[in-house]
Amino acid sequence: MRYIIGSPVTFTEELSRFLLIWLGLMAASYAYRQRSHLALDLLILKMRGRQKVVLNVIIHALIGLFSISVLVIGGIQLVYVTYALEQYSSALGISMGIVYIAVPLSGVAITIYAVDFILQELGLRESDMVTETATSEEDLHTG
């Protein structure tokens, strides 16, 4: 460890900031799994049958596309850039790449959930709308 100098406040402060990034992004995928991200459901509530299925598929497909392009591709590129170009955090001295890995990881989880939601909508997988009690750890295995 080449950077162990400075006051302990900095370590805890930096560590807690990085944990917030990890917690925030990981929990964001969990919240998506729980369908708890806020959305405007006026249109969806008006729809019935096939229409509703199509709209839901579109919504989850858009989310999947976003997470594949921005979170997964963009995130991997970000990790690569910061890792390969040797960006280190100032207090802990860890590669910023490690901090940023949370981005593509949450992207992978969200993408898997999006695909799963689409399959559920199309009736290719059993819907889990009723059983919403799974914890995040258990969730990671259902994809």
Binding site: R17, L25, V70, L71, I73, G75, Q77
Partner: peptide, 15 residues
């Protein structure tokens, strides 16, 4: 996409 990913990550990087 890399830029938006960075903004997402750094956006949360605040004490």
């Amino acid at each position: 996409v890399t830029t938006v990913a960075q903004r997402l990550g750094t956006g949360l990087d605040s004490f």
